[in-house]
């Protein structure tokens, strides 16, 4: 059955885009337009207007994709496993650093001082010892000179 009433604007728009109209089948719509000068005129006007719409050229240069890829990759967050790895590396560096520059205290003195307080006086080098040794040497020299009569 051929539709006798004219097509509405939405149906004409849908027909322009090759879509099925809502109120009528595609076949019926085409049959109607064929026999209806008014609808033909409206369809022609619609086509003219739509074809007069300027194209919107979106030209991209050949290297655009490479540039965009680089920018996207740059913005990708680092993987999560990187954090423990960095933390482990830092810890290892601290340990190596500590061993390299660590100077042990004189353990003997400390140990003795802790266990036998009196040992401190026995083992601690005294600044007067050299002087006393020199005095002994001087005495011996004096004795030698007396013996030789010089």
């Amino acid at each position: 059955m051929t539709k006798t009433t004219c097509l509405n604007e939405q149906d004409l728009t849908l027909l322009y885009y090759g879509e099925t109209p809502d109120s009528v089948s595609l076949l019926e719509a085409h049959r109607h337009i064929k026999g209806c000068p008014a609808c033909q005129q409206r369809q022609l006007q619609l086509e003219r207007t739509m074809q007069a719409l300027p194209q919107r050229p979106c030209e991209l240069d050949p290297h655009y994709a490479t540039r965009l890829t680089a920018r996207v990759v740059e913005r990708i967050p680092r993987r999560r496993f990187a954090l423990p790895a960095v933390a482990g590396g830092l810890a290892a560096a601290v340990v190596v650093f500590s061993f390299t520059f660590w100077k042990p205290e004189p353990l003997l003195v400390t140990h003795n001082a802790a266990v036998h307080p009196s040992a401190v006086t026995e083992n601690t080098p005294s600044p007067d010892i050299d002087l006393l040794e020199n005095l002994d040497l001087l005495r011996e020299l004096d004795t030698l000179s007396e013996l030789t009569g010089v």
Binding site: C58, Y64, V73
Partner: peptide, 28 residues
């Protein structure tokens, strides 16, 4: 974990995705 795979994917679709966005928004 092969990140180069993702780069290939982006390169493959970059132009088309940008053109679509450009047409929708009207600004490059």
């Amino acid at each position: 974990g092969d990140e180069t795979g993702f780069e290939i994917l982006v390169k493959q679709h970059a132009d088309r995705v940008t053109r679509l966005a450009w047409r929708l928004l009207g600004r490059r």
